[in-house]
């Protein structure tokens, strides 16, 4: 893929003003296509960053109260998209294990919103992510990853099964396609804009 020519400003000289970053979260169950989605649109091969939590994962964060420290490592994939010479979008995939909520706060703070990837054969895998974003008030859209190009549910059935509000967009996507992931991200940003505009 030739990112140098497709990303404006990627090979351009450093801009004079400060560069701004924004981020979008890509959530969903294990194997639903999060890393594939990030990689399809990222200008770098997805990188992995690890957070180490030195405590039990059940909300104990004061180490002095934990006699034998347990350490847990949580890995997150992410990619980067230069949107302009002074604007960089980062895409973060959520960790596979939903129970590591401490990482989700870091992931979602200041985010534009989230794409919740859904595999219709395993709808329940995304319930926890949807609950989290609803509670956090973070705008999100549902993107049904069409494995094999086949939908086993109608869209209205998906909405009902996930019981998401009617104003939450549900789209289909192919996580392997740059064009499809791009359109999905555009839909999310439009949704976030209408949410933020309505809040003012």
């Amino acid at each position: 893929m030739d990112f140098a020519t497709s990303s404006p400003g990627y090979a351009a000289p450093a801009p004079s003003g400060p560069t701004t970053s924004v981020k979008i979260v890509v959530a969903g169950g294990f194997g639903v296509g999060k890393t594939t989605f990030v990689g399809a649109v990222s200008e770098i091969n997805p990188l992995t960053t690890e957070a180490v939590m030195t405590a039990a994962s059940d909300g104990i964060d004061d180490l002095t109260k934990v006699p034998d420290k347990t350490t847990t490592t949580v890995a997150m994939d992410f990619g980067r998209v230069s949107l302009d010479r002074d604007l960089i979008l980062y895409l973060f995939g959520t960790p596979g294990q939903n129970r590591f909520w401490f990482m989700w706060d870091d992931l979602t703070r200041g985010a534009i919103g989230a794409v919740v990837l859904v595999d219709t054969r395993r709808l329940a895998d995304c319930f926890a992510a949807i609950d989290y974003f609803e509670d956090a008030g973070l705008p999100y859209i549902i993107a049904v990853n069409c494995f094999d190009g086949l939908l086993s549910h109608e869209m209205d059935d998906v909405r009902e099964a996930l019981s998401v509000p009617t104003d939450v967009p549900i789209v289909t996507c192919d996580a392997r396609s740059r064009e499809s992931t791009k359109l999905t991200l555009i839909r999310l940003v439009e949704h976030s804009m209408s949410r933020f505009a309505a809040m003012r």
Partner: peptide, 26 residues
């Protein structure tokens, strides 16, 4: 260090407009 465009809460609409434009131009 440059903290992100949305460090204290949500990105503003002008920034989101730029993100949208950037994505459309990809």
């Amino acid at each position: 260090v440059q903290q992100p465009g949305a460090a204290e809460g949500k990105p503003d609409l002008a920034l989101l407009e730029r993100v949208l434009l950037g994505l459309r131009n990809l």
